[in-house]
């Protein structure tokens, strides 16, 4: 069973979002890291890059696969998680403790169509 945490918001492409004021902290879910297997590289945008809701902002790589990351919100990247550059395996260890980017949101209402933990649990149940 994949872990799901209450209080976060979730996208159908398996990103989680923690809203902190106008900042969205974005990572991938435990379900996503399990699907990928051993993550070897996290391709992340740089601070000041723009991201748009539904568009890819980077990718997770494993030895035999690559999976695009889709932004659940639109806005400007304020920080990326530098620790992942040296240790992408942190996501395998704990996908919720290791965020990927922080985005200053343009439109706070964009998070309203994301799933809560209950809805996401049901969603991955059907996958």
């Amino acid at each position: 069973m994949s872990k799901v945490i209450d209080g976060l918001l979730y996208s159908e492409s398996h990103e989680w979002v923690k809203v902190d004021g106008d900042i969205a902290v974005i990572g991938v879910t435990d379900f996503a890291q399990k699907e990928m297997g051993d993550i070897t590289y996290v391709d992340m945008p740089e601070p000041d890059d723009e991201v748009s809701k539904g568009e890819d902002f980077g990718a997770l790589e494993s030895v035999k696969a690559s999976s695009d990351l889709y932004s659940p919100v639109s806005g400007t990247v304020v920080e990326n998680n530098e620790a992942l550059a040296d240790a992408p395996e942190l996501i395998n260890k704990d996908a919720f403790a290791n965020w990927i980017i922080k985005v200053k949101m343009e439109d706070m209402s964009e998070v309203s169509d994301l799933m809560d933990s209950k809805a996401y649990s049901d969603f991955i149940e059907k996958q």
Binding site: T40, Y41, A59, E61, S62, V63, K64, A65, S66, D68
Partner: peptide, 12 residues
Amino acid sequence: LQAREQHIRREK
């Protein structure tokens, strides 16, 4: 570093 390559990334 094969995740850059066509057999994995296809059009990307």
